[in-house]
């Protein structure tokens, strides 16, 4: 196992002020603190070369988990082991094998071309000249930024900067890569380019990659295995396909009608999600889907019928809203 996490917790103590002026006065003497459980007793393990997607709403604990795994945060309790090291010890041998890329933070020098930051990292990570040339050459080609290497970072677009950030983070060819919202704020074209790059990189280098993203498409395209996290606890850890089976309580019957049928009659079968004649989508309970399909075929003029899984994004939204509701 490359990563082993055993009952990891990260709790913060935050000061809670009562509202208004009196609350402010009171807080001068008496302060109330509350503990926020950003991550609470999570456990999982990851094998070499896996590409895992972390899914969860804002404040679920995704970034905190990545920060604990990379060694940025000191855990409140639990045990974390990455590549045989305890991350928070931040031993140079460990740091030379990992990289954390955060979409909203940057390491590039603002007033110099990105190439100078690459050179700085070359020295910091003690990369031999030949290896540096090869790695940068490959990354520059994969990300198609050769023309931009000599341009001042402040003059690059957001997408170009993100590509340069990735190169800077990958110069030492890390074995484990933590990507926190790498596509945030990028347009769809750039998102796809970065996605393709991450996929290629994972295949070429056999690096273990942990990815968090708000864009479901990132996770859908890249990760076979997902970890769903909410309120600091893991709701699901497994294959993306099985996530739908586990959490979706319903299926969708996608029907093409031969003749117009009143909506009320169709609601005998299930909840009509959309009705744009001749197309109808009906939501039925997962266990009743076969019976509902037979009923439809028997009672109504059906030209075509498909039983479909609901969209993964809808399933996840349902999971979080049920849990938070």
């Amino acid at each position: 196992m490359v990563i082993t996490v055993d009952t990891l917790s990260k709790h913060y103590k935050t000061y809670k002020k009562e509202p208004g002026f009196m609350g402010s006065l009171k807080s001068l003497v008496f302060r109330k603190y509350e503990t926020v459980k950003a991550v609470d007793k999570i456990s999982f393990s990851i094998e070499e070369g896996e590409l895992i997607g972390f899914i969860g709403p804002n404040g679920a604990g995704k970034t905190t988990t990545l920060k604990c795994l990379s060694g940025l945060l000191y855990p409140t309790s639990g045990k974390v082991e990455v590549l045989g090291f305890t991350p928070f010890d931040r031993k140079p041998q460990y740091l030379k094998q990992i990289a954390l890329v955060m979409g909203q933070k940057n390491q590039l020098w603002w007033d110099l071309p990105a190439e100078e930051t690459f050179l700085l990292n070359k020295e910091i990570y003690e990369i031999p000249d030949e290896q540096y040339k090869n790695t940068v050459g490959q990354l520059v080609e994969l990300l198609d930024v050769k023309e931009k290497l000599g341009v001042q970072v402040r003059k690059l677009s957001l997408g170009e900067r993100m590509k340069m950030e990735l190169i800077a983070a990958l110069i030492h060819t890390p074995k484990v890569l933590f990507l926190d919202e790498p596509t945030i704020g990028l347009d769809v074209v750039m998102q796809k380019q970065l996605r393709d790059f991450v996929k290629n990189y994972n295949e070429l280098q056999r690096s273990t990659i942990l990815l968090t993203s708000h864009y479901m498409e990132d996770v859908r395209q890249l990760a076979k295995r997902v970890i769903v996290i909410d309120h600091g606890t893991i709701l699901y850890d497994g294959k993306l396909d099985n996530l739908v089976k586990k959490f979706a309580s319903h299926k969708l019957l996608s029907v093409v009608l031969d003749e117009m049928v009143p909506k009320e009659k169709l609601e005998e079968v299930g909840v009509v999600v959309s009705y744009e004649y001749p197309k109808v989508v009906i939501k039925v309970k997962r266990k009743d889907s076969n019976d509902a399909a037979s009923l439809l075929l028997k009672k109504f003029p059906v030209d075509d019928l498909n039983i479909e899984e609901p969209d993964i994004e809808d399933v996840i939204r349902d999971v979080f809203s049920t849990k938070n509701g």
């Binding site: 060694g71 931040r90 954390l100 910091i124």
Partner: peptide, 17 residues
Amino acid sequence: HGRLTNYLLRPISYYGI
């Protein structure tokens, strides 16, 4: 501003750099 992140995860002495 959180830029310490860039230094903590690099294999070099923070004091020295």
